[in-house]
Design a protein around this nucleic acid. Structure first.
Length: 394
DNA sequence: TCTGGGGTCCTGTAACCT
DNA sequence: TCTGAGGTTACAGGACCC
């Protein structure tokens, strides 16, 4: 999809069509997550602090975003893709790889399929998308980027080199700011330059794996298949405070909140986590992580919290100024295939049953209907909150 | 100017096991 | 009993993507 979040907002509010619109954090520490092409004309792009974006483009409308709505649109679009081929690999909410090598008889050649997709997405969702058609995932991805917005670019097998080699190294998928800097220092400006440098040189510069990988990509070689339905490897939640925090009690409460959120997601997807990772970002933006692997995988918020809090307390911070904390669950295993460890003397109905009951209450009465008492604030007492706040849901 | 939140993958080091 | 080689895993950090 082109400028996905922003496009969905414009569809919802047609009076914004043709105007600069920014979706992103509206607080003092927000960043841009999506911007219409009208806003991009002012130099606005995603990941830029909203404050800077507004300085560049003061007339822009800034909207907080509505992930639930974008998720709905995403599901509809992915369903359309799956009606074309079962080989759909979603890359994010707004993009996916489709292997259409088997769909030709029914729907025509890949170019016809691409046009069909673009038309259907526009008819059904009222937003535009761009499609790259190529013999490999990586070239298709670059082609779709090149064709944005509202475009279609076909790179046939014989055209891959002439398409690839003039591109700047930074255009390659996997080459970010740091790697680009290293490559430019070596005098490598284009993908063609990259292709003609010995692999060993590349590997010395950016590491053995990345070096070999880049060399292959520079010659258009990308054997990765389109794989549908890969299970997540980790899930987590993190939050940047509105202003830096040095009160351990505030950090502890946030950790509980994040642990509950993460555990809820584990339960809703039917997986257990073996490893808990704590993330702390300090006022100066340095970031550390600490992790611990559990004896028994879990999906219980209280256990994630206990672990995260122990990791935090072990840091022995003396009122350090904290900007962000996060809790992440890794080493995910299928809950069905994992027998729960029976502990000697453990109560039959424990914390897990309480959290499952809270899940059911949340499904009926809205997110956060039941939660730990320490997470209740005046705002969240039913009836006391602002309209639309969590406490006012029924 | 001031840097979100969701992820994936790679690398170096240390510990541990055989 | 000691030593070393080699593999695996845990942990921390960092680059990158949308």
């Amino acid at each position: 999809m082109d400028a996905f979040f922003a496009s969905v907002e414009v569809r919802r509010r047609p009076e914004l069509a043709g105007k600069p619109v920014i979706v992103g954090g509206t607080g003092n520490r927000g960043v841009v997550t999506s911007a219409t092409y009208e806003a991009r004309a002012y130099g606005v792009h995603s990941a830029m602090p909203t404050s800077r974006a507004l300085r560049l483009c003061p007339t822009a409308t800034v909207l907080p975003g509505d992930l639930a709505l974008y998720g709905e649109v995403s599901r509809s679009v992915m369903a359309l893709f799956r009606s074309i081929t079962p080989l759909v690999e979603p890359l994010s909410l707004d993009e996916a790889f489709l292997d259409v090598s088997g769909a030709g008889r029914r729907l025509g050649d890949p170019v016809a399929i691409a046009e069909y997709i673009r038309a259907r997405v526009f008819d059904e969702q009222g937003i535009t998308c761009s499609v790259g058609v190529a013999p490999s995932k990586f070239v298709a991805k670059l082609a779709s980027t090149r064709s944005k917005p509202d475009g279609l670019l076909v790179v046939r097998p014989a055209e891959v080199m002439e398409f690839l080699h003039p591109l700047p190294v930074g255009a390659l998928w996997g080459v970010g700011a740091k790697t680009e800097e290293v490559l430019l220092r070596l005098g490598l400006r284009t993908v063609g330059d990259l292709a003609h440098v010995p692999v060993r040189t590349l590997q010395r510069a950016v590491g053995p794996a990345a070096g070999a990988h880049l060399h292959e990509l520079a010659w258009g070689r990308d054997p990765r298949r389109v794989v549908p339905d890969e299970p997540d490897r980790s899930t987590g939640a993190e939050e940047t405070f509105g202003t830096d925090v040095d009160d351990p009690a505030v950090v502890h409460r946030e950790l509980l909140h994040l642990a509950e959120r993460t555990a809820g997601r584990l339960r809703s997807t039917g997986v257990l986590a073996r490893t808990v990772t704590l993330k702390v970002r300090f006022a100066d933006f340095t970031t550390i992580t600490r992790s611990r692997t559990l004896k028994v995988p879990t999906d219980v918020g209280q256990e994630l919290y206990d672990t995260a809090r122990a990791l935090y307390d072990a840091l022995g911070l003396e009122r350090a100024r904290i900007r962000l904390v996060g809790v992440r669950a890794e080493g995910l295993v299928d809950a069905d295939g994992t027998a729960r460890q029976l502990e000697l003397g453990a109560r039959e109905h424990g914390r897990r049953d309480a959290e499952l009951a809270a899940d059911r209450a949340s499904r009926r009465f809205g997110a956060g209907a039941v939660r730990p008492a320490t997470l209740l604030t005046r705002r969240s007492v039913p009836g006391a909150g602002p309209a639309g706040g969590p406490g006012t849901r029924r």
